[in-house]
Nucleic acid binder design. Structure first.
Length: 565
RNA sequence: GGCCCGAUAGUAUAAGGGUAGUACGACAGAUUUUGGUUCUGUUUGUGGAGGUUCGAAUCCUUCUCGGGCUACCA
């Protein structure tokens, strides 16, 4: 039966799918599968959340179940509707549809009733201690905690006090409600955890209706129970909370959701903690939550990542319980794999001062519209028109005066093909007084035109180019990894000192006119700049100056070759 | 000192007592009007020690290493 109880044999199951299939086989919950994605609306979603989203929605999909979107909004001072909106947008953009949109705050009345139930059963008490006192009495992982006098309050006294907490009779911090579990438990979570605290704060949904709010530990499991969530998936750090949740389920006799923990995603060269991401934004190290260097879903979207590529990534990294650090290269593989199939190849010369190439035997004033293939991966090839003329720009890197061995590009006396156009030969190098190369004089082979080449000459290299009189100036933002070390979180130094100073460089570029048309029409926004990488049109573009973000470079075999020497 | 979890190639992830696979990466070659793509091939692994068994990555013991647990955060 392992390998797929319902026809999914073939792809191996992760350990959560195995649990789910075992539950289905055992007839648990009548075979029903209902998951939930439970973000707190206090920040933007990142790629680690994408893993969780794909897991929860994917699981429900696979087993014919449903997934709720539930906001864990139990701490009004950190939460905001801005985050609610961005989270909903990101989940939808990733391609998922939730069955219900719920909020933990929808359940405040019922959670409050659960608290009274606990009090009535003698399983919760109001504690007047300060937070320092509570911490001190809690003990440490190696020493048991101590009880205090408040623990012995009567049910009636507790009920009265708790109701007065709710009524607003006390200031913030004056009292808390605690579950009465076991102050000596080796599991710290069971040492009479606080389940309600006083916060005279405005809530983004319930307004000023409440001045007491349940703790996460007294809201999350209850919300799962209320929604009859069958499988409650969360990250490893909540594992030690599970006995507490199970205790609540038992004492309150509510629906027993099954919590399963998995390892959170870590990615090389970035940070994943919400606190750190927030700091990067607030201190201006990046330009907002959607800065293309950020591992946020909004950032990746602006970087040019597609929903399918992120889903593919989530699929490939798998689900397990061991700590992991995924190679950023895998994410890049996923987006290249997709963009290779889908994007048009266009020509863009990314140089502040590109190299001008004058084709001396090409008639002055003459211009041709060449037909160039959009994408060799297409099943049925499509073409676009690209203007060609006597003067073209090429990249400085594509010419070397004294080339090393195996340099296939242009050099004095050498020949290359201008992509989609002609084979040219470099006849002369023109320099200014300072010795800088200002121009290349070349000659072309008229019979070598792409598609009708009768020259019989084979050249090793093909380079891209843009016709000078037709070139459109653009701004190109070259993004690289945000941090210069693999695992900033594990570094002793402050993570902000580890930011890669070259994570963004802005360059001027000259692009072919078809690119501007395509981008303006909105038909496409992702492109391959031939031989350079994948780029996406940025929202900062203006009518006369497009802006492109580099999503990812192409694999660079030449750079690799050079490294060897 | 305690409790909980984990450990399979460089990185991830399969193998549920019976041939250690897969992907990414790396390396080598072929193809190529992108030094891209594609194709072919190669390399690299069960943390240590015991035990159970005809047979152990898998079960048991123990050690080592890594992570988590001491917020009125989630």
């Amino acid at each position: 039966m392992h390998g797929g109880a319902d026809g999914h044999a073939g792809s191996p199951l992760n350990f959560i799918e195995q649990v789910v299939e075992d539950d289905i086989a055992a007839g648990k919950n009548g075979g029903r599968v209902h998951t939930r994605f439970p973000p707190e609306p206090n920040g933007y979603l990142h790629i680690g959340h994408a893993k969780s989203i794909c897991l929860n929605f994917g699981l429900a999909d696979k087993y014919g179940g449903q997934t709720n979107l539930r906001f864990d909004d139990t701490n009004p001072v950190t939460e905001d509707t801005e985050y609610v909106d961005s989270i909903k947008n990101d989940v939808q953009w990733l391609g998922f549809k939730w069955e219900n949109e719920f909020y933990a705050s929808d359940y405040f009345v019922r959670i409050y009733a659960f608290a009274e139930t606990l009090i009535q059963k003698g399983l919760a008490y109001v504690d007047d201690s300060s937070s320092e006192e509570i911490a001190a009495q809690k003990g440490t992982p190696t020493e048991p905690g101590r009880t205090n006098q408040y623990r012995d309050r009567t049910v009636d006294e507790n009920l009265d006090l708790f109701r007065r907490m709710r009524a607003g009779d006390y200031p913030d911090g004056a009292k808390v409600l605690r579950a009465k579990v076991d102050m000596t438990s080796p599991n710290m979570q069971l040492r009479d955890p606080i389940i309600y605290r006083i916060k005279h704060a405005h809530h983004h949904r319930t307004g000023d209706a409440w001045c007491i709010y349940p703790m996460y530990d007294f809201a999350h499991g209850q919300s799962d129970a209320i929604e009859h969530i069958t499988h409650s998936l969360c990250t490893l750090e909540f594992e030690v909370h599970r006995p507490l949740y199970d205790w609540f389920i038992q004492q309150l006799e509510i629906f027993p959701s099954r919590q399963i923990e998995f390892a959170r995603l870590n990615l090389t060269y970035t940070v994943m903690s919400k606190r750190k991401l927030k700091q990067l934004v607030e201190e201006g190290h990046v330009n907002g939550w959607d800065d293309p260097r950020m591992p946020t879903i909004a950032g990746l979207r602006r970087r040019g990542y597609t929903p399918a590529s992120l889903r593919e990534f989530a699929d490939r990294i798998g689900i397990a319980r061991r700590e992991n650090l995924i190679d950023l290269g895998l994410l890049e593989f996923c987006i290249r794999e997709e963009l290779n199939k889908t994007t048009h190849r266009v020509m863009a010369v990314l140089d502040e001062e590109p190299l001008k190439l004058v084709i001396s035997n090409y008639e002055e004033g003459r211009e041709e519209m060449l037909n160039i293939e959009n994408n060799p991966e297409e099943e049925t090839t499509t073409y676009r028109k690209v203007p060609f003329s006597r003067e073209v720009y090429i990249e400085r890197d594509d010419f070397m005066e004294n080339p090393p061995k195996k340099f296939f590009r242009l050099f004095p006396g050498g020949m290359v093909r201008l992509k989609g156009a002609y084979i040219i030969k470099c006849d002369d190098v023109v320099k200014d007084a300072a010795g800088n190369i200002t121009e290349l004089r070349c000659s072309y082979l008229p019979e070598s035109r792409s598609g009708s080449d009768t020259s019989g000459i084979n050249v090793k290299g093909t380079i891209h180019w843009v016709s000078v009189p037709h070139a459109v100036e653009a701004e190109v933002r070259l993004y690289d990894r945000l941090f210069s070390v693999e695992n900033p979180a594990a570094d002793e130094r402050d993570f902000k000192e580890l930011i890669n100073p070259a994570s963004l460089s802005v360059v001027r570029a000259f692009v072919e006119p078809a690119l501007v048309e395509a981008a303006r029409s909105g038909e496409q926004s992702n492109f391959q700049f031939m031989r350079k990488g994948y780029f996406v049109l940025d929202a900062d573009s203006t009518a006369d100056r497009p802006v492109f973000n580099r999503t990812v470079t192409l694999k660079d075999g030449w750079a690799k070759e050079q490294k060897k020497n």
